[in-house]
Design a protein around this nucleic acid. Sequence first.
DNA 1: CGATAATGATACGGTAGCGAAACAATCATT
DNA 2: AATGATTGTTTCGCTACCGTATCATTATCG
Lengths: 116, 116
Amino acid sequence: MSVALSPSQALHLWHSATLRLVRSDAPDLTLRQLSILLHIYLVPPPHTVRGLASTLGVTKPVITRALDSMGSLGLVRRSRDERDRRNVIIQRTVDGALYLEKLGDIIIDEGRELSL
Amino acid sequence: MSVALSPSQALHLWHSATLRLVRSDAPDLTLRQLSILLHIYLVPPPHTVRGLASTLGVTKPVITRALDSMGSLGLVRRSRDERDRRNVIIQRTVDGALYLEKLGDIIIDEGRELSL
DNA sequence: CGATAATGATACGGTAGCGAAACAATCATT
DNA sequence: AATGATTGTTTCGCTACCGTATCATTATCG
């Protein structure tokens, strides 16, 4: 199966999926928050504040704030690393998995309609 | 050419493209702003504030503010409709086209690496 | 132990987003 | 011309984000 996209297809896919995301009643995450959420769920753990900051190229408070926001939405969970109690391990939640599942559905759905 | 995506592929594509967008030095647009920008450039004109608000399912001030922000970034331009001077016609700019071209490149680039 | 380093959270001042409501300008209707 | 409808902007009070700098806690090293 190929996922080669033409320039037009790529932008149309992004357009329609983003539009549906905006129109949906799903929590309105920033691009950075969405990136963090995707990273946590798609890249093997463990995930730390410092690591995420470095990966995204942002400062640590950005990560702390994003975890605060998404944490209160139930999309993500924090816990101390007992082996080095300075670290915070960021963990997945059921709600977070559901959120991303919905996002995946939207993308696939819009991608399907790209067939020319 | 097929653009059928598996659930995993769809999310990985979104993840890597979003990550590169966040890491890039490109202006940090919100999801709504990005959606507006894509709509203006991908859907045939004319585009009005009212029309965009209805399409995105948001209030008019959201569009006005987004146009203010993206306008000062040079991504978008406003002009009066001379046939009905109540309307504002939203127009494309060279910088806006370049921004989206770059976004398209990123998506294509990451999509290419999805081939299994 | 004591000093230094590392990690994440917090404080701060500033900017920008939000929806609801009110507003000015323009058009349509009579 | 006068009234009412339509369009986009502005104002209001509020919330959330930003980067820099600082802080508290914990670990490491001498």
